[in-house]
Design a protein around this nucleic acid. Structure first.
Lengths: 255, 255
DNA sequence: GCTTGACTTTGACGTTACGTCAGAGTTGAA
DNA sequence: TTCAACTCTGACGTAACGTCAAAGTCAAGC
C-alpha cells in the first residue's frame, strides 16, 4: 500500500501539468478545480486533481469555454461524446474558413507582386472570402450538412412577413398553453394545443426529420447558447410549458 | 461634378459596412477610424472612411490585432505585404494544428464508440496532439520552414549553461558598447566591438543566412511582439546601440 | 529561537474587441 | 411644437487569464 498518493503545492503542481499558477487560481475561483487546503489556506493538489486538470486542458484545447467544461465534467460520458461531436463540427467549419482565407491571402500576395495597388489587391480578395459566408452562424453546428442545405433552401422562402406571422403564432400558442397548464395533457384541449404545436414545428422543419433532429439538439443545448440568444428566446423558455407539451405529445402518440 | 460624395451618419454607415455602431465608436476612440463631426458632435462618415474601414475589416479578419492594423494602415504598401506574408504563416500553422486536432477528436470519438472509458479515450488522444507541438511559438512565423528546421537542430545543442553564457556575453557586450557610444564607429575600438557582435550572432545562426534573415525580420517587427517578450528584451532595445553597431558594421564592410 | 528567502494567499487592475445599458442631447418630419 | 428615432459619452460586463502588491507561511541554516 503506497497510501493516498502525494499532495502537491500549487507551483509544483502547475509545472507538473504545464499550466501557470495563476491559471490554477482562476480555476479554483470559478469552481472548475477546487483542491484541498491545509490549515493555513495553502492549496493541496492530489493525483485525482491532475486527472481532472488534464481533462480540462484537453477540452479547452478544443475551444470549449470553461463554463461548459465545468458542467460537462459533472455529467455522464454520453453528454461528453455529444459535445465532442458538436465541437468537431465547429472545428471543421473553422478549417474551411481558414482554407479559404489562406487561399485569398495567396491571391492577394500574387496580385501585390504584380504591382497592383494594395487596396485593389488585398482588400477585394479577402473581402470576397469574408462575405462568402464567414457568417459563421452559431446554430450551424447543431445540424447535419444535409439539414443545413435544406434549411438554406427554405430560408429563401421565408419572407419577413412570414417570419413575423410565425413569431406571432408562436407567441399566441405559448400564451394559450400557459393558460392551460392545469388541464389534463391527454385531454381534448391539450391535444388541440399539441396539434397547433406540431403544425408550427412543421412549418419550420417542412416535416423533415433531419432538420427536426438538429432543432432538438439545438434546444437541448440551450444552456450553452450565447447570452444574446438566450435573452431573445427567454419568453419561450418556460420549463413548465415544455413539460406540458412533452406530456401532451406522449399522450398523442399513445393514441 | 457630383461634389465630394455623401456623408453618412453612424448607423447608416455601420449598416453599409456590415459592422455595429459600437464598433465604430470603438475604432474612433482608439484612433483607428476618426470621422468628421458636425457642430453637435455627430460623427459624419465619408466614402474614404468606408474604404479605410474595409481595409480594417479585412485585416482584422486575418487575425491581426487592431493596434497593428493602425500602424500598418499608416505605412507604405511594402510593410503591408510583409505583414501579409507573416500572417500567412500564422494562418498555415493554425491550419496544421486544426487538422491534427480534428484527427485527434475523430480518433477519440471512434474510441468512445468502442466503449472505452472517456478518460482513456478522449484525453489521451487529444493530449497527444497538444503535446506534439502546440507549443505555438510566437517567433516561428518569422523564419522560413528550412530555417525553422535548422533552428530545431541547433536547439538540441543549446544546453542551459551555454544559454547562460550567451546571455552574459550579450549583456557584457551591450554594456561595453554603451560605454563607447561616443567613439568613432569606424575606429579601432568600435571595430573590435563589431567583431564581438558578429561572433555572437554567428553563435546563434551558425553562420546560416536563412536563420540570419529570419532573425532580422524578428527584430524589425519588435513593435508587434507580445508584451512579455518586449519587457524581457528591453535591456537590449537601446536604439542608440543598434544605430552605433549598424554604422560600425557599415564601416566594416567598406574596408 | 530567530532570521531569511522562497513560496503562498487574496485583492485588484490590465488586456482585447467590443456588447449592453443609462442618461442626456439632437434631428427632422408631422 | 411635439415626439419618435437617432446620437453622444460614460461606465460596467465579457473570457481567460497576466501582472503586480501587500501580507501571511514554510523550512532551512545559524
Amino acid at each position: 500500500m503506497s497510501g493516498v498518493g502525494r499532495l502537491y503545492r500549487i507551483q509544483e503542481f502547475a509545472e507538473l501539468a504545464g499550466v501557470t499558477v495563476r491559471t490554477l487560481h482562476h480555476y479554483d475561483r470559478i469552481g472548475l478545480l477546487k483542491p484541498r487546503r491545509n490549515s493555513a489556506g495553502y492549496r493541496l493538489y492530489a493525483e485525482r486533481d491532475l486527472e481532472r486538470l488534464e481533462h480540462i486542458v484537453a477540452l479547452k484545447f478544443l475551444g470549449l469555454p470553461l463554463k461548459q467544461i465545468k458542467t460537462l465534467l459533472g455529467k455522464a460520458r454520453f453528454e461528453l461524446s455529444e459535445a465532442l461531436a458538436l465541437q468537431q463540427r465547429v472545428l471543421k467549419q473553422k478549417r474551411e474558413l481558414l482554407n479559404r482565407t489562406i487561399a485569398a491571402v495567396e491571391e492577394a500576395e500574387e496580385a501585390l507582386r504584380q504591382g497592383q495597388r494594395p487596396q485593389a489587391a488585398i482588400l477585394r480578395k479577402i473581402i470576397e472570402v469574408i462575405e462568402m459566408q464567414s457568417s459563421s452562424n452559431w446554430t450551424e453546428k447543431y445540424y447535419s450538412p444535409i439539414a443545413r442545405e435544406k434549411i438554406e433552401a427554405r430560408k429563401q422562402q421565408w419572407s419577413p412577413e412570414l417570419q413575423e406571422r410565425a413569431t406571432k403564432e408562436w407567441t399566441d400558442l405559448f400564451r394559450d398553453i400557459e393558460a392551460s397548464l392545469d388541464e389534463d395533457p391527454a385531454g381534448e384541449k391539450a391535444q388541440r394545443l399539441a396539434d397547433r404545436w406540431c403544425n408550427l414545428v412543421g412549418q419550420f422543419t417542412g416535416g423533415d426529420a433531419q432538420i427536426s433532429e438538429g432543432l432538438n439538439r439545438l434546444w437541448a443545448d440551450r444552456e450553452n447558447w450565447p447570452e444574446e440568444a438566450k435573452r431573445q428566446t427567454a419568453p419561450y423558455a418556460n420549463q413548465r410549458i415544455w413539460e406540458f407539451i412533452g406530456r401532451a405529445m406522449a399522450a398523442r402518440k399513445a393514441r
